[in-house]
Amino acid sequence: MDKKKKRLITRTIILALLVVAIAYVVYSTATKDKTSVLQVGDQAPNFSLIDLEGNKHVLSDYEGQGVFLNFWGTWCKPCEKEMPYMNNQYAQYKDQGVEILAINIAQSDFEVQKFVDQYGLDFPVVIDKTKGVRNAYNIIGLPATILVSPEGKVTKIVTGELTEQQIGAMMESIKPQ
């Protein structure tokens, strides 16, 4: 090959490799907190948690149904506000193949039970006693809502309070066809 051409190709390859390496480092650092655990499109991390009645809920058992995961705590005011909305929408979508799993972060059975009784919640409420599921979903702020499609993929991640309308639309979006 022509010496000049060879030189150009070598230089281009070396520079391109270096630029790619730097771009990767910068990109990874910039998106570290957001992507290290969970992103829309990922397979939702499977988990197994126990509800107040002592029943075990495994996410993968709900395959074929849309799952509305809601991380919450009794002290969290926005969580408290959206719970009745979720309950209303649940009544409507439960028969259409959408399940709600409300995941409490490591509170006592007593407090969670009181809360459930107070608002008459119909959907299963599980307690993440060891915070392992919270870590797996990289939940930092509450409330946090994760939508899981019937195929088990994450389709939406929302941190913060939702309106009843939003909750309805979100459940509609994960309704099995």
């Binding site: 991390p45 988990f47 197994s48 948690l49 495994v58 060891t130 392992g132 599921v133």
Partner: peptide, 11 residues
């Protein structure tokens, strides 16, 4: 440590 293959939350 969780046993091999155990899911998050399973203690």
């Amino acid at each position: 440590k969780q046993p091999e293959g155990a899911l998050p939350g399973d203690t």
